[in-house]
Each structure stands twice: as C-alpha cells, then as structure tokens.
Write a protein that binds this DNA or RNA. Sequence first.
DNA 1: GATGAATGAGGCTTCATTCAT
DNA 2: CATGAATGAAGCCTCATTCAT
Lengths: 214, 214, 214, 214
Amino acid sequence: MLCPFNKPRWERRKEARPQELLAAALDLFVERGFAVTRLEDVAKRAGVSKGTLYLYFANKEELFKAVVRENILPVLGEAEAMIDSFEGNSIDLFRDIVLGWWERVGDTTLSGITKLILAESGNFPELAKFYHDEVISRGNAMIGRLLQRGIERGEFRQLEIQNLTKVIVAPIIMLMMWKHSFGACQIEPISPKDYLNSFIDLCLHGVLNDEVGA
Amino acid sequence: MLCPFNKPRWERRKEARPQELLAAALDLFVERGFAVTRLEDVAKRAGVSKGTLYLYFANKEELFKAVVRENILPVLGEAEAMIDSFEGNSIDLFRDIVLGWWERVGDTTLSGITKLILAESGNFPELAKFYHDEVISRGNAMIGRLLQRGIERGEFRQLEIQNLTKVIVAPIIMLMMWKHSFGACQIEPISPKDYLNSFIDLCLHGVLNDEVGA
Amino acid sequence: MLCPFNKPRWERRKEARPQELLAAALDLFVERGFAVTRLEDVAKRAGVSKGTLYLYFANKEELFKAVVRENILPVLGEAEAMIDSFEGNSIDLFRDIVLGWWERVGDTTLSGITKLILAESGNFPELAKFYHDEVISRGNAMIGRLLQRGIERGEFRQLEIQNLTKVIVAPIIMLMMWKHSFGACQIEPISPKDYLNSFIDLCLHGVLNDEVGA
Amino acid sequence: MLCPFNKPRWERRKEARPQELLAAALDLFVERGFAVTRLEDVAKRAGVSKGTLYLYFANKEELFKAVVRENILPVLGEAEAMIDSFEGNSIDLFRDIVLGWWERVGDTTLSGITKLILAESGNFPELAKFYHDEVISRGNAMIGRLLQRGIERGEFRQLEIQNLTKVIVAPIIMLMMWKHSFGACQIEPISPKDYLNSFIDLCLHGVLNDEVGA
DNA sequence: GATGAATGAGGCTTCATTCAT
DNA sequence: CATGAATGAAGCCTCATTCAT
C-alpha cells in the first residue's frame, strides 16, 4: 500500500485517468485515424473498460477535441512567448523557432494531430474550424510576427507577409505529414535535420546565384 | 461496333460505367475519407444501384485501389516532357513548372488523389508506396533536375539538391492539401495565384536583405 | 411458384412487409410497452432481420407513430361517418357507437395502443400530443356531437357537453386499460358485454329512483 | 434515544433515508415510467449517491415494489370509515365520497401510484394483483355498498351492482390517469371540479329527457 | 448485366450493478 | 454507512455485402 504501483487501478483515477485516456486516444487516432479508431480500443489501451471513457468524455468527438486542446495549445503558447522575448538576430530566432518546433511537436506524437486534422477535416468541419482557429492561424500569425520583426530590424527585405507565412509554414507541416504517411509506411523516410537545414537555407537565401547579378 | 460512337447510347453507357463509378468514388473519398464514405452514396452519385458496384469491384477496398490507380497514371509524364525540352532561363523554367503544375494538376480533381493518399496511407501502405514511387519521387526528381540545370548554367548557386527538392515540393503539395481540407470547409481559402507567387519569390531570393551585407 | 406461399420471404416485401412489421410492432408494444420492446424482437416476430426494419422506418419512434397512424385513424373515420348518417333514435345510436367501438377497437389489439399511450406519454410527449390530437380529441368530439344530436331531437335533456363527453368516454377507455393491465394478469377479468350494458344503462337513466320523486 | 426528536439531525436523516428515496423514486417512476427511470436520477433527487440506493434496496425492481407497497397502504381505510358512519341521504353521501376521494387521493401523489400500476402491470403482475386486491376491489366494494344502501333506502332504483360499480369507478380512475399522462404533458388539462360535477350529475340522472316520457 | 431488399456483424452509447475506500 | 469510479451487458442504429429476380 505504500507504493502507488500497488494501488488498484481504479484508485488512481482522479489524478491520472483523463490523461491516460487522452494519451491512449492520441496514439490510436494518430495511428489509425479518427473514424476507424474504436473507443473500445482506446479504453483497452488505457487499461479501462469502454464505459469508463464516458465518465470523462461525453462522446467520441469530445474526446478528439480534448486531445487537441490538451496537447497542442500549451506548445503554441511557449513558441509565442519565445518570439516576443527574443533579443538577438532574427535569423537566429527563425532557426530557433523552426528547430524548436520540430523538437517539441514535429518529433513527437503531437505531429500526428496535424495529419489527422488535414486528413479528416471533411468529416468534422467543426473540428477543422476549431483546429484552424486555435492552431493554424496562431502558427501563421507567429511566423508573420517573426517576419515583421526581421523587416523592422532591417534584417529581412520588404516582404509580402500575408501569403509568405503560409508558404513558409508549409514545409514544416509537410514534414509532419510525411512522417505520418509515407514515413510511417517505411517509404523513404526523410532526415528531419537535413530537411530543415535545407529549408532554413532556402528561406534565408533563395536559390539564386547573386554573384552573377540576377 | 468498331467505333464506339456508333453504339447505341445505353451500350456506350455500359462501357463507361466503371469510369463513372470511379469518378463518383474519387469525389466522395476525397471529400469524406475512405472509412466514412458509404458505397450507397457512391452508387447514387454514379446513378446506379448499390449492387452494381459489386459487378465491377470486388469490395470497397478494391474500389479504393482502382480509384487511386486510375487517377495516378494520367498524371505521370505530363510535366516531365516540359522540363527537358525547355530552352530558356532556369528562372523562367521554374516559374513555368510551378504554375503549370498548378494549372494541370493542383487545380484539378487529381489534387484530391494526393490528399487521399496522404490521409489514408496508414490503411493502404502498398498504395502509398505505389504513389510515392510513381508520382512523388518523379516529381522530386523533376525538381532536382531543374535545380541541377540551374546550377550548371550558373543561374543558381551551389545547392544541396537531395533535401532541397523535398522542401520546394512541400508548399505545392500543401496547397493541394489545403484545398481539400480547410479550403473545402470554407475556412480561409487561399488564393493559389498569390500563394504561388510568394512561393516563387521566396525560392528565388530568400528573405534576407542582401543590401545590408548578408 | 404458382402459390405465393412458396415464394421466398424477401420477395413478398413490397406489398406486405411494412404491414407485417407494423403488426409485429403493435403486438409487442402492447404486450411489453414501448421502452422495453427491442427492435430485434419486432423484427424477429415479423420474420426479418434487425436491419430490415430500418428500410421502412427511420427509427423506433417513427415505427410507433406509424403503428398508431395505420391502426387507429381508419377506425375513427368509420365511427364519425356513422354518427353523421344515422337516421334513428339517439339512444340506439349511442348504443351502436359504444358497442361498435368495442367490437372494432376495444376487443382487438388496437385497444392496447390506448393503454400504451397513457402509460408512456411521460417519455414521449410528442407522441402523446399526436395521439391526443388525432384520436382522443376526435373521439371526444364524436361523443359531443352525439349528445348534441340527442338534445336537439329532444331525446336527451339539456346537458353540459364539454365535461360530460370526457366523463362518458372514461369508462370505455378504462375498459380497454383494464383489459391490458389487470385483465392481462388474469386478475378479475371484466365481462365487456355486461360492463358496457351497465354503462349504457347508467348513462341513459342514472341511478335515481324517479318514482320516488327525485 | 427513545424519542427520535432527541437524535442529532444526521441520525434522524439516516432513518429518513429510505423514505426520501422512495419519495424520489415515486416521483420519477410516475413521471417517466419504470424502465426509463435511471437510478442515478433517483439518487440525485434524494440527494444521495447511486451506491446508497443499494444499501436500502436490492435492485431496481425491489425499489419499485417498495415504492408501490409503501404508498398503497396509507390509502386503505381512509375512505372506508366515511361510508359506514354516514347518516344522511345517499345522494349526498355519493357526492361526498366522490369529492372526498379526489381531495384525499386523486389530487395527491398517490394518484400517481394508480397510473404506475396500470402502466407497469404487465411487468409486475404480482404487484398488480396486490394493488387490485387491496385497493381497487375495496374501492369497488365501497361503491357497491353505497349503491346497496341507496337501493335499500329507496333512493336508488333497482341496479345491477356487480358491473355498475366498475363503471362508476372508471371516470374517477381516468381522471387520475389523465392527470399523469396528457395532463402532465400540458395537453388539455381537465378541471377536476367541473369534470366530477358532470360525473355526479350523469350518475344520478342519466342523459334522458324524462319529461318526454321515458 | 442491373437491381434493391435483406442480412448481420460491429460501433457508439447507456445504465444497472459492484466494490474498494 | 456512504461514496462514486468502474464495469460490461445490452440496445439502437449503420452499412458492407449478398443474392433472387
């Protein structure tokens, strides 16, 4: 009785149960997709029975929302804070943001959520809107502020920010998508580090040979 | 009987059946995903009965595979010819490739195939591999050759081609994904023209302010 | 193939299936109650599978409504016609209506519907309203017209019709209730014939001994 | 400890528990029916937890039986005393009985018991029998004795008592049923006073116009 | 070939009941 | 005694698949 691991499972619930369920749901949703995942499997993976899920989440869709809310939003806040408090060069900031995002999100199961949303948005427009408003648009705004900062500091040239942010976000999202689609099938996995370095290099310098005088 | 146009209408109809079914299935699979699409809806959209589907496709999974196979093949080769025969400046070539791709693929139903594959790759790994080998990797190779051409002609600087191609392809794929996910939900649709111009501008020049002395 | 009874079950559907399902549902709803009746049992009694029910009725509640609609409404129309076309004495008409109602409704499974509605109205207010509007109030109006007719012809004394109709309808409804509650439990079954004769006698003459000078 | 009012409040509470549970259950059973009432709601209405119910009642069915048993007994005997001690006119006695019944039973929660029994008799035949023997048949006997008294005193004409009692009881029972079915749904609530006056008038005089020469 | 009625396995959800604290 | 988290059987409903015509 002294060791918590001796406690019967049901006793640990108030603290951990919802988190265990969310973790199990995240895994399975990412692995199989929302529509195909059976709640019974989520429960089984969390080590509880089917009915227990309904003590914590009203239905499958609410479970999905909770998974998104609990996992993605905290990370976003951190990144936003980083931009606003960063002191140095915008180039370094860009590099930090990109690599940090990969470390905190892309390289974790969380990246699967993005894939999930893009894949299943057709069936859950409400969820898609929720995710867009809470995650995508905030992410875009973050990159937009970063570009603005660089322009104001004279580090970046005059840029059309509106569309450019989406273009810049795209390769990061694609890297996450890749990991959970082709990557998950063992098809030509990409080296994130090399990919992201190429990405950063491209964003900074473009492809042109400036010495020739393009 | 040799010329299809001599056949009575219902007989031509009969031969067109599978194509009509595939088209209907493509639409619905793209819009809703594989698991959620009901065969009855596919049949209804094609104007036939549910049972008729099974005259042409053994089951739902085979229908999916046929949809992908039938729609992937026509895409191949379209753009490849373009690149090798082009004479002018690599910058113009890049611009033509990107905008031409959008016009001939991205802006057609075929872009839905890409979304479909990325979304359902987990459940159909062999299709994902097929799509990767026949489409994605050939697209990458195309961009790779384009970059190589630019470098050889001194128009592009020395570039690490392997990963860069994937980075450059990413925003194009994302544009297609967007069209079929958030775009389909009426959530902040992107203007492809503006997006692609920003993309081309970024790829060529990067974001740095060269005059400052980068 | 000549004899319809040799036909496979599924072939007879377009004509008879919905009626078979409604009959089975009526029996079980009356026997067990709406909430407790399982659709699988309804299907089984009709000799079909669970899914077949949903080809004809959207859900359990719609099935219930259809049972009421198909069974009760036609009988009501007949009774209404009888009142309007009857030529003779109002006393005879009253007797005919009461005994006819018993024959056509009370003595059949249909009487169970009334019990059902009264018992389960709490859970299905929408159904209760439907039944009240379509059946109860029409039945009351029918009796009301009968009383009015008798008064106008001088056969009945001046009566307060509004509440009296409900009072007169009550013993008829109770007889149906009884049959499906205590009667169904083998508890002191009532002889409908004697009960209705007492009822008619009471309605006509009351209990008072007029000779004494009431 | 002998006087309950000396006990601390929570201890009196403890003894009152079963009554509070039964009251809550009565309300909900009457309102929604047995099958549909959730024990959790019963517990909530009584202000206890679901588990507590099982400290007092073995299961849902036993709770139902207890509800009925506890509520039936107090009804008995209330009215019986009235009839045998009455001195005056049988007409006045009838009026007093009917109006008194409504006041003391029909207009209280106890009328719900009647509705409950009639509605659920199919699933609880032994309770139905109990209720019939202890309540219904005693009520009938009471009315029977009343009629007999009137006949013997020459106030009522010669009547067939056996069935007539049931006919006379019917509108009273129906008034209770109505209150808990259509009445509870806000569908055309009946004015008990007017209804009962019409009822009494009908029972005494019938509908015929005696002056015409009945 | 084409139909569409029929099937029945399977998923989501509810809730009576249990039981460790 | 009281709690309320946990269980799991059971019901409603969906839909891929079959098959007699």
